[in-house]
Design a protein around this nucleic acid. Sequence first.
DNA 1: TGCAATTTTCAAAGCGCTTTGGTAAATTGG
DNA 2: CCAATTTACCAAAGCGCTTTGAAAATTGCA
Lengths: 350, 350
Amino acid sequence: MNLKELSDLLGLSQTTVSRALNGYPEVRESTRQKVLEAARANNYAPNARAKRLATGKAMTIGHVLPVSKKHEMVNPIFADFIAGAGEIYSDNGFDLLLSVVDDDSEEASYRKLVSRGAVDGLIVHGPKVNDSRIALLRELGVPFVVHGRSTEIEADYSWVDVNNARSFQRLTEFLLDLGHRRIALLNGLADMDFATRRGAGYVAALEARGIEVDPSLMFHDEMTENFGFETARSLLAQGNAPTAFVVSSIIPAMGVRRAISDAGLEMGKDVSVVIHDDALSYFGNDGDEPAFTAVRSSVRQAGRHVAQALIDKIATPGAPVHQEMLEAVLTVGRSTGPAPALRHALEQEK
Amino acid sequence: MNLKELSDLLGLSQTTVSRALNGYPEVRESTRQKVLEAARANNYAPNARAKRLATGKAMTIGHVLPVSKKHEMVNPIFADFIAGAGEIYSDNGFDLLLSVVDDDSEEASYRKLVSRGAVDGLIVHGPKVNDSRIALLRELGVPFVVHGRSTEIEADYSWVDVNNARSFQRLTEFLLDLGHRRIALLNGLADMDFATRRGAGYVAALEARGIEVDPSLMFHDEMTENFGFETARSLLAQGNAPTAFVVSSIIPAMGVRRAISDAGLEMGKDVSVVIHDDALSYFGNDGDEPAFTAVRSSVRQAGRHVAQALIDKIATPGAPVHQEMLEAVLTVGRSTGPAPALRHALEQEK
DNA sequence: TGCAATTTTCAAAGCGCTTTGGTAAATTGG
DNA sequence: CCAATTTACCAAAGCGCTTTGAAAATTGCA
């Protein structure tokens, strides 16, 4: 059923039917009711392809998911982020176009999406330091919002981020307060902007206490369970092992926990672990006593905020950029305790 | 830049330019080259909205991601599946439309997507037993492929699935061969079709050995890490605890492992664990000695197959249904060993 | 009752492509 | 060399909507 058929059926013009359906005022209320009912009865929905051509709007937001052929790695936070963003799109009548591309053709993909007119706006995922996509999208003149930020980019652009530096400084300080001095950092890939900021927070906390930063305790990699496991295993096997770990995601933290128990040690007693927790739906790190001490910031919530910001931007092209810092709260769980040296001292006291 | 501008620029008609770009034969090769070069130089790409209206094709595949407001749970395999499917779409010029909907309005969402003409085909995720979506999509007359199957549905429809029953029978037999007799099953939600089949495989293995099935050892829930942890913890704390676990996904298996080590036990020695491994990119359970003994079947690969099947179906409407069973291979890892009783007997022998 | 103002409806143009049904120009065959 | 093809190109229609500009119907007020 198309508009012509529906209007013939009603004995009205296409104009009137279209206006009735789209809520325009210049149509009598009784007519509108008739139209709406006929549309429902005949299961009519305006053809999206025609509507988009006629209005010049795609009513679609693009997300580009770069997939490295090398590692075959998909960012595990992606699904939760998309779920959050998608809720907002649904509520606002937007479609979500997901473009899965090889990571070396990511820019071409953005370019194509825009020149084809397939999207009204784009989300930038996983910005790197000095990310070239930001300049590209500004040049293309398409509305976009970045999930995260990109250091070294001067230009104003819209973003939604968490305070990674402060969070990691806070996590590190927490460990320092417990007497830990050798603290390992398991971070994301070195070129990711968030990893840079997290590293800076970690370093700042150590330096503020006059503790020398040991580069051999800082690791960058894809945040897999295996990365956590292998790194922690080799660290724990060596002399002068760290007594604590700061881990960028709950997934490598699973690996760290595995390495700790494999080594016959106890997490929260012999070795402490703190993490950044994205509040992934299948890894609830919550309740009265979460497994891990963590700064938590729901990536799903971030998805909602990013989506809303982009929709607003599309609706109001002239508006100033949207820059929003989400809070990450520090919650103490069972994965942390006094450093062994300090613990012995405390026990002595009694 | 649109087609009219480009053809004016070239001094050719829109017809000729369109044909040159779309590879039709009735255009001189030298002309085609000129057109292609001008298109490239001017960064021209045909407007997707106009093209879709003109051709009557959306060149878009729809995926519906139902998100339960209750559990706020997103299926963790979704991202990897989408990554696989998306590769195929990109290679074939299709877009991927992802619709995130509340799980009680899922059917309405399919209906709308089709009547709007927004998609040429649909993927059905996570089929339940006797899933109503299959009848709906047949009625709507839209091409679709199911990832999984739906028991009790008589009609022919296209699907790509793994042999869940056989896999779980095999996993259970493997444990039985090691002398385990009390074996717990941590399964997905009871109404999911895959969970039913897996449960059946587990039961079949036990019954074939004349071992009574104990319903108090069978659990159904969302496959979160916490589900694995809580279930295993309470089981291990009670008298007559199981000596082995069959777990439907690596994620709850992480929780089981945590519960085992929290109980001061050793996985692979005191307690054995076998899993279904979807080969999620961030949980590599591979290498010479995988952490878990598992039947593995890459969900990303499944995504590729499902996508290809759907594209074929769209290209050839009259073709017979595509029904494909993917193989899951059993790989032995470090999470399994002889049942304690059997182990003691073996040690005695020496 | 009559006429201007207002409300309601309509015909037709336009969105940017593809595709049908042509027409010249170039090529071929006898 | 000329008719019959074949090749290379074009004008215009059509995809199903929205929206502009105009007409018809209704209302208000003198």
